[in-house]
Design a protein around this nucleic acid. Sequence first.
DNA 1: CGGGTAATTGACCGCTTGTTTAGAAATGGG
DNA 2: CCCATTTCTAAACAAGCGGTCAATTACCCG
Lengths: 195, 195
Amino acid sequence: MARPLAFDPQEKLHQAMLLFWRQGYESTSVQDLVDTLQINRFSLYNTFGDKEALYERVIRHYRAHVFSHLEAHLQPAREGLPRLFAYLDAVCEGLARQPEPWGCLLQNSVISRNAFSPPLQGLVDEFITTLQGHVLAILEAAVESGQVNTDLTPAALADFVVIQIQGMLVASRGGAHEALRNSVAALGSLLGYRR
Amino acid sequence: MARPLAFDPQEKLHQAMLLFWRQGYESTSVQDLVDTLQINRFSLYNTFGDKEALYERVIRHYRAHVFSHLEAHLQPAREGLPRLFAYLDAVCEGLARQPEPWGCLLQNSVISRNAFSPPLQGLVDEFITTLQGHVLAILEAAVESGQVNTDLTPAALADFVVIQIQGMLVASRGGAHEALRNSVAALGSLLGYRR
DNA sequence: CGGGTAATTGACCGCTTGTTTAGAAATGGG
DNA sequence: CCCATTTCTAAACAAGCGGTCAATTACCCG
C-alpha cells in the first residue's frame, strides 16, 4: 500500500475542538491549528478539508462526546421536572468546572452562525431545535402530571426555559457561576419544583 | 483658520454604529467603514482614531441614543414590577421592529469582549453591571412591597432576570420574536404579575 | 488677494488570513 | 528489492487586514 498517517485523526480532532472551544471559530487561525495540533499545514487540509469542514467535524465531535452526556439527563421526558433540573444542574456543574469560561461550543457556534455557510448554519441551528424539543416534551409531561401549576401553555414555558438556558450559556462566559446557580434555583422555586 | 470638515462627524458616527450593529466588530473591516460612511480612510482615522477607538465612541453613542430610551423604563425602581415589564415589553418591541435580527449592540459587544483591549472590555462589562443594578433595585422594591411572593432573595431573583434578558437578546438574533414575547409572558405569570 | 492651516486624497506599508503547489520521504505488496 | 501509492515538508500564493504617508486641495483670516 502506501505511507501511513503519522498521527491519530481522532486525537487531532479532539485537540482542534478544545482550541475552537476556547478561542471561537473566527479567532482561531489555521496557523493556530497547525501550531497546536502539531501537524503540517497540508496534512490538516488533506485529512479534514478546509477550515469550515474541520469545524463541522468538530461540532459533530462535540455533540457526540460532550453534549450527549448532558442531553442524557433530559430523558425520559415523561418524568418531567426532575429531568429538566438534572440537566440544568449538570450544565452548571460542567460550566463551573471549566478552567476558563469557555461556555458551550454549540451555543458559541449559534452566536457566530453568520460566519458560516448555510449548510453549517443549519447544523448549529439544530442545537436550539433539539433543546427546544426536549424541553417541550418535559414540560408537557410536567403540566399534564400536575408537577407545575400554571395557566401557561407548555410551548410558552418551553420558549421561556430555552431562552433561560441560552442566557446561562452566554452569561457563563463572564465567569458568573454563582449567578447561574441562583438562576436555576430561582427557576425551580418559581415552577414550584421541590427537590 | 483652516479648511473645514466636509462631513458631519455625528452623522458618520451614527452610520458606523448601524454598520457595527449589523455586522459585529470583528466582521466589519475598515474598508467596509470607508465604503459605507463615504469618507476617506485617512479622514476616518483622523477624526475617530483607530478601529477600536471608533468602536468605543460607537458604544457610547448607542448607550446615549438607543439604550437610554429603554433604560428609562426601569426607573423609578421603587415602583417595582411594572417598571421591569415596561422595559421587557419595550425590548421585545424594539427587537421585533428591526428589519434584520441584529440583537442589542451592547450585548453583542459583551459576547465578543475578548476581541477588545482591557479598557474597552470594562466599558462593555458596564452594560451588565448597570442592568443588574436596575433590576436588583426593582426586585428589592417588588419583594418589599409584596408584589412578588417568594422565599428567594432579591439578589438571586435579579441574577435570574438578568440572565433571562441576556438570553432574550441572543435568541432575538435568530428572529424568534414570538418566543421572546412568550418568555416575557411566562416570567410575568410565574412572578404573579397582573398587568 | 495671498498665506497659513488643516482636511483630503490615493497610493502604499508590513502583516496575517485561508488555501495550494511541487517535490521529497516513507511505506508495503509483488 | 523496487515501484506504486500516499503522506509529509516547506515554500509560495492571492487577497484582505489595520494603519500610515507625502502631496494636494480647499478654506478663513488678515
